[in-house]
């Protein structure tokens, strides 16, 4: 039995190596089949390559968006002037991401069904929305709208050279927008806690208000339709909790310590504990 198996296995190996069917087959039918599959192979590779390119670009978007977010997290405690510079750089970086990487994705998606490739670029797009909305919030104090995001990622008219009938764009589904904004909450929490330790108390209350409004939004959805969103919402709830605690203790301390000394108290706390644990 062992012999039989080994013999048939070598037969299979030979077939695999040659990659060709038995020589006795009628050659005409054979080549028809092979020609067909050569065509299929081309089509298949074209699709897979495109997916891969979109995926790569999306990963680059993620990396660069993360950098923008980190740079903006350094803002609390900086002077007004430094803050301006940082936000200016961030704004330039975001533009750059839009005009290079995301535009590249948009070009790949031209004349395609975006849903076919949505899984390849969803992660990068979410991270980008997170960075963009964070930046937008620091500038204006409000949450960037879905329309604004889509507008930024639509490249049609200003590009005369390739004025196509269909404007070039990366499709931003409401899902990606909501998921990106859900990620923003975590950044806002971090920013808020840092603001506490650098005595930017107005910002804390402002962030707390925005987070509460977003919480209301999440609750209005009722049933959470996407698994990933459910997970993000759990994280968001704990962030909200931390921010609320921070605002609460801020208010309490205000009554016992003069306002200008408060920051020193909190700076002490901040040094003792990790800033990610709620202040008490």
């Amino acid at each position: 039995m062992v012999q039989i198996v080994s013999q048939t296995m070598t037969e299979a190996v030979i077939v695999a190596k040659e990659g060709l069917p038995g020589t006795i087959a009628s050659p005409s039918q054979d080549t028809v089949l092979m020609d067909l599959f050569r065509e299929y192979s081309k089509t298949l590779d074209k699709k897979n390559d495109k997916y891969e390119r979109v995926y790569k670009a999306s990963r680059d978007v993620t990396v660069r968006s993360k950098r923008v977010i980190f740079s903006m997290q350094r803002i609390p405690g900086l002077s007004e002037e430094e803050r301006e510079t940082l936000l200016g750089t961030a704004s330039g970086d975001l533009r750059d991401i839009e005009q290079t990487l995301l535009k590249h994705i948009a070009m790949e998606l031209r004349d395609e069904d975006p849903y076919q490739f949505v899984n390849a670029y969803t992660a990068g797009l979410q991270e980008y929305i997170e960075a963009l909305s964070f930046h937008h919030f620091l500038l204006t104090g409000s949450i960037v709208s879905h329309e604004e995001v889509q507008r930024r990622l639509t490249y049609g008219p200003q590009d005369e050279a390739q004025a196509a009938l269909v404007p070039l764009s990366v499709l931003v589904r409401p899902k990606e927008y909501i998921l990106g904004v859900a990620d923003l909450t975590g950044e806002l929490m971090r920013f808020c806690i840092k603001c506490v330790s650098t005595a930017d108390f107005d910002k804390c209350y402002q962030i707390c208000d925005v987070l509460k409004a977003m919480h209301g939004g999440f609750l209005s959805l009722g049933y959470i339709p996407a698994k990933e969103l459910y997970h993000k919402m759990m994280v968001f709830k704990s962030s909200l909790h931390k921010v609320e605690e921070a605002c609460y203790s801020l208010q309490l301390r205000k009554s016992e310590v003069p306002a200008d000394m408060l920051s020193d108290v909190f700076a002490m706390y901040d040094a003792e504990e990790n800033s990610s644990t709620p202040l008490l």
Partner: peptide, 10 residues
């Protein structure tokens, strides 16, 4: 075998 040969092209 023919099928295997054809799919090997992919």
């Amino acid at each position: 075998r023919e099928l295997h040969g054809a799919y090997s092209l992919l």
